[in-house]
Design a protein around this nucleic acid. Structure first.
Length: 481
DNA sequence: AAAAAAC
């Protein structure tokens, strides 16, 4: 493997770009472009960019000021990745790195490996960023020796990431990627691949049974890291898994959301990390028109949902509900009323879940009713509408609105520069206030829809969706859908 | 009182 660090630190590979230099100048510049800060974890970092939307903190301030470690890169070529990986990017029509890729990739692929905590909006290319890093760390001459482990919070997301790695790595000879999810890895042989992407329980099970040799792992990626580390159960599993891995492993944490409380866990889990993060106000994706439907009472929600069916099927749509039971119930009623809908949640068997999502990806099914299992990460570019049939709430008792889950749910549309609509159903004071708190948290206004003004509703929704011509100017959908 | 995640 070529020495990536020496490549990216060559000034000749890093042409100084005036535009990049000007955005890199922080508002509170101390004169040399950096600002000394001490975080509550006691680690000194330098803020190298505090433009309005992105903040980068380096764990190590020793890097050359002209290095792309500071300024980011403007092209994939500057990263000096091996040819098969660049060929994979070309074949997928990845022309220009997205914002998060520009800034995070040089920091992640440089040597010595440094941990990373990265936050970027949904649909802005986080997956490709960590997939490229993973591929850059793998020695393809040892195809059955596990070298990279990626963890995700659901079976569906693990499979999706596996697909992206296989697609980006299609020209990497002898690349084998396995999904460590229930039912996927043979009990006889155990893990026989260089890259493993899975869910925490199965991964831990395989390690305990000694069917997964973790001794040569070089990089650990945790996608949806705030969810993974925060969740009772999954947080414990992630900590235990890390405890069984080599101590020098590079740890990369990714998510669109990192609540302050979880950020402290994250810094302990991935010590001395470089950090890239966005401000609250910059988290929401501009292309998503966020609306809410003012339902007169709870029982009318179902009728209004059915009226929306015609708008849902202009593209594809995801309907989020709170429980598996209500997903089943709404599916049953809608089918009885002549609508074609499918439902996916954790009560279904694994193979069934795979088939349901494959049908949705391919457009064979266009309306999917689901729980929070699909709230995060799932990338289906045809999704033009997301409906929050139930407003997401945190914990038991529905006491607190779940702003993070809201953001992840609506992020199933409007991916990679496309546009989309989200419609959240409110029907009483409590649901209205929950949604208002979420809107306040992100500093946004929601567009009101009234069930009686149906012409207006149709017009507002169609206006957005009809302009939804897929015209991303960077990092198109990695699965090609 | 929920969802998810292992056998």
């Amino acid at each position: 493997m070529a020495d990536l660090a020496s490549r990216i630190s060559k000034p000749s590979d890093a042409p100084v770009d005036d535009a990049a230099a000007s955005t890199a100048a922080p508002a509170e510049d101390n004169g040399n472009g950096t600002e000394e800060v001490i975080e509550d974890d006691g680690i000194q970092r330098g803020i190298i960019e505090t433009s309005y939307d992105v903040e980068v903190k380096l764990a190590d301030l020793q890097a050359d000021k002209d290095s792309p470690l500071y300024s980011g890169v403007q092209s994939f070529e500057e990263l000096g990745l091996p040819k098969p990986i660049n060929d994979g990017l070309l074949a997928m029509n990845f022309k220009k790195p997205s914002k998060i890729q520009e800034r995070a990739l040089p920091l992640m692929i440089s040597d010595p490996p440094t941990n990373m905590i990265a936050q970027s909006q949904s649909g802005t290319g986080k997956t490709a960023a960590f997939v490229l890093t993973v591929l850059s760390r793998v020695d393809f001459s040892k195809p059955q020796q596990p070298q990279a482990l990626l963890l995700a919070p659901s079976r569906e997301l693990a499979r999706q990431i596996q697909g992206v790695i296989q697609t980006v790595g299609q020209f990497c000879e002898n690349l084998i990627v396995e999904a460590a999810i229930p039912g996927a890895i043979s009990r006889e042989t155990g893990v026989r691949s260089s890259v493993v992407v899975g869910t925490p329980g199965t991964v831990m099970d395989l390690i305990r049974r000694r069917q997964f040799d973790v001794s040569q792992l070089k990089v650990l990626v945790i996608d949806e890291a705030d969810n993974m580390l925060d969740q009772q159960g999954m947080g414990d599993q992630c900590i235990r898994v890390k405890g069984m891995l080599p101590k020098t492993i590079q740890i990369l944490l990714f998510s669109a959301t990192f609540p302050d409380k979880v950020m402290n866990y994250a810094r302990k889990y991935a010590p001395n990390s470089n950090e890239i993060k966005l401000r609250h106000q910059e988290l929401t994706v501009k292309g998503i028109s966020q609306m809410y439907m003012d339902c007169p009472d709870e029982s009318k929600k179902y009728d209004i949902l059915c009226k929306l069916y015609g708008l849902m099927t202009i593209g594809s749509s995801v309907i989020f509900v709170k429980t598996r039971e209500s997903a089943n119930e709404i599916q049953r009623r809608m089918e009885a009323d002549g609508h074609k809908v499918s439902a996916l949640h954790g009560a279904y068997e694994g193979q069934n879940r795979d088939a349901l999502l494959d049908d949705f990806r391919s457009g064979r099914s266009k309306v999917l009713i689901t729980t929070n299992v699909l709230a995060r990460g799932i990338d289906v570019s045809s999704v033009s509408m997301v409906i929050n049939y139930d407003i997401p709430m945190k914990g038991f008792g529905d006491k607190e609105p779940d702003a993070e889950t809201y953001l992840h749910r609506i992020g199933r549309t409007g991916r990679f520069g496309r546009v989309g609509v989200s419609i959240s159903f409110v029907y009483d004071r409590k649901s209205f206030e929950a949604l208002s708190q979420i809107a306040d948290f992100y500093g946004i206004d929601l567009i009101q829809l009234l069930p009686d003004d149906w012409d207006v509703t149709e017009k507002k929704v169609q206006e957005v969706i009809k302009s939804s011509r897929a015209k991303p100017d960077y990092a198109p959908n990695a699965l090609g859908n």
